[in-house]
């Protein structure tokens, strides 16, 4: 995935079944953000892989004061990339015959 300067990682082991999964997001490179970034640390949250939209969560982070509105796209893309990877891994690990 593209290096957005915002890192999103799994915050729990993925059992491949749960739709809601714990993620952790933090800024690795503040220079890649458009707005001034206040170093708050890592943000832990849960994300529903089936029913939620990464950009909506990014917007909630903006409204909660973690990021400025001008960075909502970069945060949303970072979450989207990680979610896509998790879904791709799940598809690959579906046991044959299922």
């Amino acid at each position: 995935a593209e290096d957005t300067g915002v890192r999103v990682e799994l915050n729990e082991e993925d059992d491949g079944k749960k739709s809601s999964i714990a993620l952790k997001l933090w800024v690795e490179d503040p220079k890649k953000l458009k707005g001034k970034y206040k170093d708050t640390g890592a943000i832990e949250f849960t994300f529903d892989l089936v029913n939620e939209i990464p950009e909506v969560v990014a917007q909630e982070m903006v409204e909660s004061g973690f990021f400025l509105d001008c960075d909502v796209k970069i945060v949303g893309k970072s979450i989207r990339d990680r979610v896509a990877l998790i879904k791709w891994r799940r598809e690959r690990t579906v046991s044959p015959g299922n």
């Binding site: 933090w26 708050t40 640390g41 890592a42 832990e44 949250f45 909630e60 982070m61 909660s64």
Partner: peptide, 27 residues
């Protein structure tokens, strides 16, 4: 502990914690 909780009006809970040092990008 350095953790803090922020609950968004939509009901989502964000927990702020320190970034693991090993995961910080090398400068």
């Amino acid at each position: 502990s350095a953790t803090a909780q922020v609950v968004h009006s939509a009901g989502r809970r964000f927990i702020v914690s320190p970034v693991p040092e090993a995961r910080l990008k090398e400068q």
